[in-house]
């Protein structure tokens, strides 16, 4: 397996507080890894650290074999690490179109990118509701629409690896089902890591599921995960 994303013995947390320790995992381009865990297990902190929004205290993060451990979050986004954060973090005072256009910050850093209009047309085809709401403020969207927008923004980054942090949180069951179908349609285009508490949702999507328990990764049978 050629890993797009490789995490080696990573420690991280907030200041002096270590939240997760010794995490190693690897995800190939056509793989979807599910991370299951209770509140406070360290799932969100792990994703934020892989994305560069929090510093790691030990270990390495490799993207396509390139060490990005010391890279700030905006450079990792430009390099191809996309994160749909918990709570979506939509820019409420900008329109849907402006939310999407912010991803143009990566242009000039990725020579292989198709023109922005082509990329936007692609995400509008995937989420027609966003095209209808293009001029509406991000803050005025419903929870499901905001989740669509958060995923669309990450897709516009043309990620090598897409991480989704609790994408079903606060969504109605019918929207969760539609989200599962959408994400299943994306499989194979890039590596995916999906963090969830919703086990049934993860089982529909993930090729394999690991559990996060008190800041360490364990396999489904409870043994320490030896992922790479």
């Amino acid at each position: 397996m050629t890993a797009v994303l490789q995490v080696e013995a990573l420690d991280g947390g907030y200041g002096k507080l270590t939240v997760f320790r010794g995490v190693s995992l690897a995800v190939a381009r056509d793989q979807t890894l599910g991370l299951l865990g209770a509140n406070g297990a360290g799932k969100t902190t792990l994703l934020k650290t892989i994305a560069g929004a929090l510093p790691s205290t030990k270990g390495r993060v490799l993207l396509d074999g390139r060490d990005v451990t010391r890279m700030p979050a905006y450079l990792r986004a430009r390099a191809g690490i996309g994160l749909v954060p918990e709570g979506r973090h939509i820019l409420a005072t900008l329109s849907v179109r402006d939310n999407l256009a912010l991803t143009r910050a990566i242009e000039g850093h990725r020579p292989d990118l198709p023109p922005f209009e082509h990329r936007v047309a692609e995400v509008y085809a995937m989420f027609p509701r966003l095209a209808e709401r293009a001029s509406q403020l991000g803050g005025s969207l419903s929870g499901g629409e905001q989740q669509m927008l958060a995923i669309a923004r990450a897709l516009l980054l043309k990620p090598r690896v897409l991480m989704l942090d609790e994408p079903t949180q606060g969504l109605a069951p019918i929207i969760v089902q539609s989200l599962a179908v959408t994400l299943a349609g994306l499989k194979g285009r890039f590596a995916m890591i999906v963090v969830e508490q919703n086990k049934a949702f993860l089982e529909q999507l993930a090729d394999r599921i690991l559990q996060v328990r008190s800041g360490t990764l364990v396999a489904a049978d409870g043994r320490p995960a030896t992922d790479n």
Partner: peptide, 24 residues
């Protein structure tokens, strides 16, 4: 302008802006 909107985004939510590739 694109630069102006990046500035507004960095102001409103620096975390989200960085995740979208904006140099906050």
């Amino acid at each position: 302008t694109r630069a102006g909107k990046q500035l507004l985004a960095a102001a409103e939510n620096p975390y989200a802006a960085e995740l979208l590739g904006v140099n906050v």
